[in-house]
């Protein structure tokens, strides 16, 4: 592991921490434009975070230490997740520590803590949110794993850096299995990040909300960390999509110049991805909570078909 590797790793984590709220701001801004609103501006998430960090944290009288520790833990999990998805370079010192399956485990760990923290106060909303979050989670997790397995079977590896290296080495084109897997990943990402067809990030209506119900009792810096972690999660999912399906331009090992070029390229991909996400959210309507299992079942089926098609048509480049 070289110094360059460490530099790339550090750059990647810092970029994720800095860019995640911007990405969220960009998606919100695009949505506003698409809905003919002016929008709060790109920097609004930063302003919100700053405001929340300055405020006192109001804790419920019943809150246990678990409730106070959870935001930091979830934030830590999401930071690590952003650190192991190769977006800028495929030479990452942290990468051997956790592969694709461990990444799914990392998301699960964060989800469990978010849900436990929501149940800690013992309000109706908290436990309802926890139940829904876990419901979405147990349906989305197998689908996500199947998407990752499809790419893992193509590259004969579950190590994310190897997957990206293999996938970026093939010629530009659309593999049928990858196309199906990409659609599945988008569906999973929408569900996992509480985006529109599954949850509405802008609502406070108890019949529909998932994410808002989970963080209802948080305030001040704890809420800021939770929201930042949610932004990081969205960012991580965007990065997984980019890394698996449009990996071209990620720097290989021993390539400092490519590393410099990778950042603007990543920004461009993220901008496009964010716009598409906003478009998708604007075009679709929020579905009833009982439709969510069907939606995620579809995602899961797509991912399984992707894997089968991959086995039938053979891995690309062979």
């Amino acid at each position: 592991m070289s110094a360059l590797g460490f530099a790339a790793q550090l750059l990647e984590i810092l970029a994720a921490l800095a860019l995640a709220p911007l990405f969220l701001g960009w998606v919100n801004q695009c949505r506003a434009w698409l809905q003919s609103r002016r929008g709060p501006g790109l920097l609004q998430p930063y302003r919100t975070l700053h405001k929340l960090f300055n405020k006192d944290s109001v804790l419920a009288e019943r809150a246990s230490p678990l409730f106070r520790a959870a935001p930091y833990l979830v934030f830590g999990c999401m930071t690590l997740a952003c650190g192991i998805v190769p977006t800028l370079s495929t030479e990452l010192p942290l990468s051997p520590a956790a592969d694709a399956i461990a990444l799914v485990g990392l998301f699960a760990l964060a989800r469990v803590f978010v849900s436990l923290a929501a149940m800690d106060i013992g309000t109706a909303f908290g436990s309802l949110g926890a139940r829904r979050e876990m419901l979405v989670g147990f349906l989305a997790e197998p689908a996500l794993l199947m998407v990752l397995f499809t790419t893992a079977l193509i590259s004969d590896s579950t190590s994310l850096t190897t997957i990206v290296r293999t996938l970026s080495a093939r010629e530009v084109g659309i593999q049928p299995s990858l196309a199906l897997a990409a659609v599945a990943l988008v569906m999973v990402a929408l569900a996992e990040n509480a985006r529109v067809p599954v949850d509405n990030p802008a609502t406070h209506l108890e019949l529909t909300m998932i994410h808002e119900a989970l963080v209802l009792e948080y305030s001040g810096r704890h809420l800021a960390l939770m929201e930042w972690a949610a932004a990081l999660k969205l960012f991580a999912y965007a990065c997984i999509g980019i890394a698996l399906f449009v990996p071209w331009g990620v720097a290989g090992a021993h390539a400092p110049l490519a590393l410099l070029a990778a950042l603007p390229l990543l920004l461009a991909k993220l901008a496009l991805g964010g716009f598409l996400l906003a478009l998708l959210e604007t075009l679709s309507a929020k579905m009833r909570i009982f439709r969510v299992p069907e939606f995620l079942g579809m995602a899961f089926m797509l991912a399984v078909i992707a894997m089968l098609v991959n086995l039938l048509l053979g891995a690309p480049g062979r």
Partner: peptide, 10 residues
């Protein structure tokens, strides 16, 4: 050929 495969998957 890749295109045909994609269409088949579709």
């Amino acid at each position: 050929l890749q295109f045909i495969n994609l269409l088949a998957a579709l």
